[in-house]
């Protein structure tokens, strides 16, 4: 049974169809990459899965249980956590305090357990030496790590990650790629990741889905998907770029 199963999902905002009859699933301990041009519906999809929006039609099942009718807090407690494209930490709290909030409420741990969990997550994300820094003073890569760490403190089974690589230097991107791989292999997390830096997606995803105007236009192994004619057409404007002279 797949960990997450999205069936015939449609979302309309007035006359605009943001998601159009989308069906896909995610297996346990899989990294599923999600790509598509701007406005394809990727973040909207995350918003629906995490409970911020309700679908217009279709269902979402998590471990066999329907979650599309649940409020966001309940969905977190069931084991789905997400990060945001623009990091939104509690800017006046320290890194450690940010994580504690997540662990106490999202992770529903008691004080002692929460502290231990936070220490552990600080270590694996490489934020230990920044634990007492106030969030608003962090550099971009550390803000992104904090977003991820906070999501981890809710002890999720499924992580929805919305863009990590934009604006990072190449070595920082590699750092993140390794972190995500470790989350999957060592911590047995399942990840759906939206990324515009396609090389990152191709490197770490087990499978890749391409959205365009709310529809799934390709699915499969990364290296096959990016060769897909429809995908090339979506990104480059046409499938045949150079007329053979």
């Amino acid at each position: 049974m797949p960990l997450l199963h999205v069936k015939n999902l449609t979302k309309r905002f007035g006359g605009l169809v943001a998601i159009n009859n989308l069906t896909f699933h995610v297996e346990e301990e899989e990294i599923l990459g999600l790509m598509g041009p701007n406005g394809a519906g990727k973040t909207t999809l995350f918003n629906i899965i995490s409970g911020i929006y309700k679908p217009t039609s279709g269902t979402i099942e998590f471990q066999g249980v329907r979650i599309d009718n649940l409020p966001p807090e309940d969905i977190v407690r069931l084991g789905i956590a997400r990060t945001y494209q623009i990091p939104r930490p509690f800017s006046n709290l320290t890194v450690f305090e940010n994580l504690m909030v997540a662990a106490l409420h999202g992770g529903q741990l008691n004080r002692y357990e929460a502290q231990k969990e936070c220490e552990y997550i600080l270590e694996i994300t490489g934020l230990s030496d920044k634990r007492n820094m106030v969030a608003r003073d962090l550099a971009l890569i550390d803000l992104r790590k904090l977003e991820l760490a906070r999501a981890l403190c809710c002890r999720p089974k499924l992580l929805l990650i919305d863009e990590v690589a934009a604006g990072l230097a190449p070595n920082e991107i590699v750092n993140f790629q390794n972190l995500l791989k470790m989350l999957k292999e060592k911590m047995k997390k399942t990840i759906i990741i939206i990324e515009h830096v396609i090389s990152t997606l191709v490197k770490i995803s087990d499978r890749l889905i391409v959205l365009h105007e709310g529809k799934k236009i390709a699915e499969g192994k990364p290296i096959d998907v990016i060769r897909d004619v429809k995908v090339i057409e979506t990104y480059l404007g046409s499938s045949v770029i150079i007329e053979r002279r």
Partner: peptide, 26 residues
């Protein structure tokens, strides 16, 4: 791509693969 120049060539010397690789970074 992502704020960096990843390909620079005369139009007549560029292949389709060059462009796709440059766009996607793979």
């Amino acid at each position: 791509r992502e704020g960096r120049i990843v390909l620079h060539n005369y139009a007549e010397s560029i292949t389709e693969e060059d462009i796709i690789e440059a766009f996607f970074g793979v």
